[in-house]
Nucleic acid binder design. Sequence first.
DNA 1: GTTAGCACTCCTCTCGTTCGAGTGCTAACA
DNA 2: TGTTAGCACTCGAACGAGAGGAGTGCTAAC
Lengths: 360, 360
Amino acid sequence: MDMSERKLQILQAIILNYLETAEPVGSRTISRRFLMDLSSATIRNEMSDLEEMGLIEQPHTSAGRVPSSKGYRLYVDQLMKRDTVDDQQVGILMNLLKDKTVQLDSLLREIGDLLATLTKYTTVVTMPQLKRSKLKHLQLMPLDEHSAILVLVTDGNIVRNHVIPLQHPMDSRSLYRISDVLNQELSGLSVAQMDLPLIQKIKRELNVDSEVMESLLDAISDTLQHADDGDVFTSGTTNILSFPEFSDIARARSLMEFLSQKDQILHLISTEEKTSGPGLKIRIGTENQIEQLHDCSIVTANYRYGDRTIGTISVVGPMRMDYQKVVSALEGLMQDFPDLFFTGSGHNAITQEDTNGRET
Amino acid sequence: MDMSERKLQILQAIILNYLETAEPVGSRTISRRFLMDLSSATIRNEMSDLEEMGLIEQPHTSAGRVPSSKGYRLYVDQLMKRDTVDDQQVGILMNLLKDKTVQLDSLLREIGDLLATLTKYTTVVTMPQLKRSKLKHLQLMPLDEHSAILVLVTDGNIVRNHVIPLQHPMDSRSLYRISDVLNQELSGLSVAQMDLPLIQKIKRELNVDSEVMESLLDAISDTLQHADDGDVFTSGTTNILSFPEFSDIARARSLMEFLSQKDQILHLISTEEKTSGPGLKIRIGTENQIEQLHDCSIVTANYRYGDRTIGTISVVGPMRMDYQKVVSALEGLMQDFPDLFFTGSGHNAITQEDTNGRET
DNA sequence: GTTAGCACTCCTCTCGTTCGAGTGCTAACA
DNA sequence: TGTTAGCACTCGAACGAGAGGAGTGCTAAC
């Protein structure tokens, strides 16, 4: 079946109306509101074709049509207006953020909150993982007789701390000295690079005298290896409860529970990440691997530090999401923070997903 | 009207049955399940009295009775079994936590998660405020040309960091030196004590030579004064969606939204705090000031560092809450972490609220 | 190719009915 | 005097029938 211009118009009309009303759209509505020069009967015929093509669906006979995952996908890829972003609201608010924050993690949290407020959907931000970060500065601080605190400043001025057990008490002088040496050797390296051989090398160079020192170094290396705190920040989860598609409380609950499980989200992100590129990525309904997300769409932007992608900012909403608004908001964000995103290939670079949505 | 023993038994029966079924309880049920030697008619008469006393309510004429705030209050104060805590589950899990964490904030978060899982309600933990904390150690770390990071270790080994603007670049040597001096002067003091006069004194003693140094000290003092990050940690919010009393999605939403507004919670806690004492505090239904909490009950424990109360751990659930379970869990917690709670006056010290619940 | 017309489907809403749980009251009983 | 059986009454929940309406697919005419 060939895809006429008219069919596209009708599909678009269905989607626009459905985004607005959340009710199945009938042929008569389209004929009256969108394509006044066509009768409802004509539109009915076209709709029947669109349904056969898998772009729209009928909840039951005698109901109007609803867009399918595939239909939304076509809309997002071809029909959606991709006008240049000049959303004042975004701009103004973003500017407020800009000077306020020099620490990447706080900035990301603020962005998450802001996006949730603006879009009225839920945002999910994965924080940079320690393993992928570069060390900027490192410092040991005395805590008590049995432990010291290892403070790490990494890419984006993110500060993390870990408690390091001490075999014997150490004064701050010694801790400073060790910090200095470690800084010289390690700063500028990515945490993943700080493996055992490197530590061994440092031990040799330091000409480690005491057993105490040795165990301290081991503890530090151990901490660096095992600290793997990919944190997840979510904002606006309660917005989910205002969508009619989640008026069924069980459904809302299952989604909210999923979103509160950080490990699951990290797992999801890490498995999907290979397909990542510059620009936004949109996953619609059943294009999501996870069952709890089959009713949802996710728009994701990867953020970077330097030339490495180190995390993601996503907006999660029902399939019947205002894609245009979400895409505008995210693109506005990307324009406002060029340091944080890849903006190479112009702002129209939405990565397409291989159509691996189910067909039944 | 006098309060006979029998009336108390009936009240207790109503509450127990209602906790279990979430359905209004009729006279016949009580006669069959709890007080087999009395007829339903007798019980009806007594129930009528209990209603007049404001302890139970009738949703509508031909329905059974439901406990009122006042009824729950009486139950909690007089009827509830306060058996010695030996909840194995709590004990085992708490022990897992004990050695794992030396940092108070992580410990509190873990406790919050644990309590939410155990009770199936929602937990709200207010983190210690910086202002109320004592400084243990302080350290300036270089960040870039325009800023340094001030890392503070306070009571309970909580690590916080703030970015400090620099007028001119400073090398780590100088930062170390200043850190040393500040440590000598400030550590052991509460943050609230670090006011302007003290800073002036330090300036004089340091015999501050350069303008650079002076502005740095000002920035630090400014940061200490204005950092007021009472954080709030919540866990198990999605549990709310499983209670029949929140099957109305609007109601659930209003509560969840309230719980996600950290500033509101902090405000609530800080206004209610004056009535705080050792032991648990229970607020039932309309005893809560905030409207969104009129259907809820909150059981709160204050935690301490040394001899000062510095924060609270609360369990929030529907009025029809299993008070006994929640109280056991919290008391178990208090027994397992004696350093964290006041446990002076035995474990039965529930603070009573002045009965300021509405009466209509 | 387009459209009017029509039969058909199926959801939704409403209304009346029934059913049952529960109450309050009264009168009888111990 | 307290307890109980009996009974009329209330009111929500559940059910089913029926009306209404939105929407469809098909056919035939333009």
